[in-house]
Nucleic acid binder design. Structure first.
Lengths: 254, 254
DNA sequence: CATCCATTCCGTACGGCGTACGAGAAAGTT
DNA sequence: AACTTTCTCGTACGCCGTACGGAATGGATG
């Protein structure tokens, strides 16, 4: 039957055992779980997820490496806590009127989260823990489209579509930023330095469309006073499609 | 001016120096770069990207670990080669008639690629190398929407939207698969085993929408004879939006 | 043929990682 | 004061990517 429940849940929800009445014996913890998680977020924001090592985190907290394991069962669980907290710490703005603006807001809020915490995009191999931060966020996201005529499954899919899109734009941008940071040259520099070599190396293979479009896109993106043009185009199309679907369903209710 | 060009380009395009006339001196390589890259892909398909270690790869090839470095400068470059090859090895189907079907095909082909090589989704921290596989694919993707009335930048954004969406659906599915594989229990099992604990741990916090929608979605997804329902909904909306945009531009040409 | 040398192969080693283990330190209970 | 529980953390193990240098190989040269 019911396998033992997942022990990480208590940690995610900071649930204190019910035996809170009995004051804890033994040595006291110097820090709180939140201290550890926040420090982890700070490091990941600065150095990326691979740059977050248990030893570094411990030393930034003034702890020995192994002391971390009294706060958190392991690195994976720490990252899960970081994700939930990063998602949950954001204040969720009030919903505007109009489905379209509401859905746009859902996408933009997630986009901002991914920009502030780019390591969120690197957390792929990890299970999606259900914690308070993720739950608050999901509830808020659903509230954007509650009552507009979508059934439950469509609501879930709509939210997934919006935040998936926001993630993928953020990921594309972050990839470029990371590249420029690690190579020390801008995209334009790279193409300038490698145009000749590319000509040699491609040795006659022709890419008429890719060449033309790639060049235009490259120019446009590096102009980039507004770095988020990619966001606007895609979001507009997605919202068009979603609004049309909603209106069509309104026309023919179940 | 032109910094030295990126040495990995020659490897990506398998460009052989021009000094091909002079036969190589010294010991011969036992394998080819493609052998190494293919073996890497095989391992990553099986064990995921973190499971691909240089030592394991070498041993599967019957080599010492350090011998790999005569084929490939390092692990990151190997992964770049794997990506380009995984993208490029696919045969690209002929384009159907009609923009809508063409764009749908672009998304579906990328979706299939991500399903066949889930590790593609984990390659986030890496630069996007321009190799023959990626170039062929991009050219093919652009050919789907060439001449429909979009300008160059919109063409790039349209492709980005389609493949970004395909990736994010694939990623959501892969996350679930990975979870079930690592925990040994299905999603349904997990919820069954943890429902009580969640009730305790959430301690009165209420999620009316998330609870209702999450439950409906969970049921629907695990029914999942068609595991790709999420794909259909989002793709339909995106295509609706894109087609509307294209038709509107056709109506008012520049 | 012998010699030379470019090239590949690979054993060893270094510094880093996550974390298992167990000894010592601190704080509440008796 | 003695005991028990809990936190702290030094050491160590087995992984990782890869720098280095020596051994093996085989075409080019005499």
């Amino acid at each position: 039957m019911s396998d033992h429940p997942d022990p990480v849940l208590r940690l995610l929800w900071r649930y204190d055992d019910g035996a809170a009445s009995a004051p804890r014996r033994g040595r006291k913890q110097r820090l709180s779980v939140d201290d550890v998680v926040d420090a982890g977020i700070r490091i990941a924001d600065r150095d990326g997820l691979p740059g977050l090592s248990m030893r570094l985190l411990a030393s930034e907290l003034g702890l020995g490496a192994m002391s971390l394991y009294t706060y958190v069962p392991g690195r994976d669980e720490l990252v899960a806590l970081m994700v939930d907290r990063a998602l949950g710490r954001r204040k969720l703005p009030a919903m505007p009127d109009g489905v379209r603006d509401r859905m746009a807001l859902v996408a933009r809020v997630h986009y901002e989260a991914c920009q502030q915490h780019p390591w969120l995009l690197e957390v792929s191999g990890l299970r999606a823990w259900v914690g308070p931060g993720a739950s608050d966020l999901y509830e808020w996201q659903l509230s954007a489209i509650e009552g507009v005529g979508l059934d439950d499954i469509e609501m879930d899919q709509t939210v997934a579509l919006l935040i998936g899109f926001a993630s993928s734009v953020a990921q594309a941008q972050e990839r470029i930023r990371a590249e420029e940071r690690s190579s020390g040259m801008t995209q334009a520099d790279w193409w300038a330095a490698n145009a000749d070599e590319l000509g040699v190396v491609m040795a006659g293979r022709e890419y008429p469309l890719a060449g033309r479009v790639g060049a235009a896109a490259g120019e446009a993106y590096q102009a980039a006073t507004d770095p988020a043009r990619e966001m606007e185009f895609g979001l507009a199309r997605i919202l068009d499609g979603l609004v049309a679907h909603i209106e069509q369903k309104r026309g023919t209710p179940a």
